[in-house]
Structures are given as C-alpha cells and as structure tokens.
C-alpha cells in the first residue's frame, strides 16, 4: 500500500504548480546609518499558486507563495472578483494555519481510561475502525420494521452516528454521504443544522 507510506511529493508539487511563475527577485530598501541597504524580498525565488480561503463562506481567492515545499506568504488574490486582492485577518493567517507546529501530523489513539495519546499507524487505525464498524453494524442493524402490519425494508444501522463536515471539500463531503448511507447510518448531520 505505497500511497499510505510517507510519499514523495516533490514531483507532485512541481506538477500541480507547473503553470505558476517564479516571483520576481525584487529587493526592498531600508535606510540605516545613512546607508541605503538592499535586502531580498522574503518572497524572492518563491513560486506563486492559487488557493482558496478556508474560513467563512465568502470564498476569497488567495495568492499563495511557496518556497521549498512550504507556504511562505498568503495574500488576497488580485484576480478574484469578490476580494480583489484584499483579505481579512483570518484569510491572511492561512499560512500560519498550514505550517503550524500545533497540527496533528500522525494518527493517534487514546485508549480507554488513559490520560494520553499514543501513536498508531494508518494501517492499524483503518483496520480498527473498519472492524468496529462491522461489529456494530452486525449487532445493531434493523432490516425491516412493521408499519401497519406491513413489513417494510429499512436497512438501518442504529448503533453508529455520524457528524461532519462543512469544513471538507465537496468531493469529500459527497464521499462521506455515500459512505454513511451505504453503511445504513441514518443518525447523520453536521454543523449546517446548528
């Protein structure tokens, strides 16, 4: 299962931003001690890519600067018809969010009664989840109900609920719905309701 191991992204990253141009190697000037010194811009040598803001639903476009496979700057995209180059403080912070050291970067498990997280491999995490889904589905499945004397096929998995998410992409949301419904999950909603 090569895709689940740590992958080689350099090729992929290069391909996905192939159309992006190298930023101009501009310099900024600062006067100090009567000497006009020149410094390279932080974005010198960076590639420019197109991104979308991930906060409120206005959907602003973001000009993302990337250097060494790392986001180094997020500014409003000048071409986007809604934000026309501007951004709010949250949009500006997309860089910090992406790079944050606070991010969870490995699957974790908290065992019953424990007071800490422990690492778990993707493989083990997926196996554990799938196996529990199957157990609970088998145990709590309602195939039919009696409605006014008629046996109606309902195919409901009663023992699993599912919440989420307005924070994931359309394709992911679609897969999540398809996944939940195929399993028979009907206690299913997300933050749009509240």
């Amino acid at each position: 299962m090569p895709k689940l191991t740590r992958r080689s992204f350099m090729k992929f990253t290069a391909a996905s931003i192939a159309a992006a141009a190298l930023a101009d190697k501009k310099r900024v000037h600062a006067e100090k001690d009567d000497v006009d010194r020149a410094f390279p811009l932080m974005t010198a040598g960076a590639t420019t890519a197109y991104g979308l803001c991930h906060f409120c639903s206005v959907g602003c476009g973001i000009e993302v600067k990337i250097k060494d496979n790392k986001v180094i700057s997020t500014e409003g995209h000048p071409d986007h018809p809604i934000n026309e180059g501007a951004l709010c403080p949250k949009g500006r912070s997309m860089k910090e969010m992406t790079n944050s050291d606070e991010r969870v970067t490995h699957p974790l498990i908290r065992k019953p009664g424990s007071d800490k997280w422990e690492p778990i491999s993707w493989e083990d995490a997926f196996d554990k989840i799938a196996s529990k889904v199957k157990d609970v589905r088998e145990e709590t499945f309602t195939k039919t109900v009696d409605i006014d004397g008629e046996e109606v096929r309902v195919n409901r998995t009663e023992g699993i609920f599912s919440l989420g998410s307005a924070e994931i992409d359309n394709e992911e949301a679609y897969l999540y719905t398809k996944f939940n419904r195929a399993l028979g999950i009907h206690n299913f909603t997300h933050q749009a309701e509240i």
């Binding site: 990253t13 991930h54 990337i66 986001v71 997309m94 969870v104 970067t105 974790l108 997280w117």
Partner: peptide
C-alpha cells in the same frame, strides 16, 4: 482515534461558497 487531516492548501477539490459558486483549487503543498 484521531485521524490527522490535511488542510485546504494540501488537497485538490472544490468548495461551494455561500453564493453557490463551485470554486476549484489544486493542492499547492
């Protein structure tokens, strides 16, 4: 079980803004 999720700049996909615009983007990192 806590599964670490990739964030917006790290994945291909579309999002629909409030005014129904289905806007696409590519993974950039």
């Amino acid at each position: 079980i806590l599964l670490p999720a990739a964030v917006a700049f790290e994945k291909d996909g579309t999002m629909t803004n409030s005014s129904r615009w289905i806007q696409g983007k590519k993974a950039v990192v």
